[in-house]
Amino acid sequence: MEGQVIIAIGREFGSGGHEIAELIATRLEIFLIDDKLLYDLASEKKIPYEQIKKYDEKPKMPFLSRTVSGYTNALEEHLAKMQFEYLRKMAEHGESFVIVGRCAEHVLKDYPCMTSAFISGDKETKCARVMEKYHLSADEAKKLMKKKDATRKAYHNYYCEGKWGDSRNYDLCINSSKIGVEGAADVILSFATRKQVR
């Protein structure tokens, strides 16, 4: 693919969204922005990585934060805004990249070169993947999935107009359990190519 390409991937926990993003980045030979984003911000702002990692993709705590005249003590919100700014700068500079989460489909919606996809999956398949990856029992995996998805949903819905996982907000919604990681990457790449041709 020629020219600027941005692939924004939203995902349910355990759906393989990250692997799909990695595969697309490898095939297109472009950056995968996930933890790199945090490392870059930590280095730019001279903050220890561990200090900001704990606020990454987290919604602000409702009773532990306050906003006064547009200023907030919610560090989650500060980090989210820094990340959105970082993504906009990358896009403005004509960089091609794959981004996982961080409300990218909303933040970069004005860039025609952006293709957005939401990756979901069947509960059983997701559970099996989480059990294998994190060495958990089925119950523990299900609990973790529920917790992570609730956090991602709250984070996304706080900053975006559209709801997390709502098909109207994404170019594609793919169930990775049906076609696998490779299949999902193929579909997204094929869509992005057709979109670029048009």
């Binding site: 730019e44 532990l64 306050r66």
Partner: peptide
């Protein structure tokens, strides 16, 4: 950090400049 307006503003200015409190 949420007890008074000055606290929120101070913490916010620090965070905007990369100093997380």
């Amino acid at each position: 950090p949420i007890g008074a307006s000055a606290n929120v503003v101070g913490v916010s200015i620090a965070a905007q400049n990369g100093h997380m409190i």
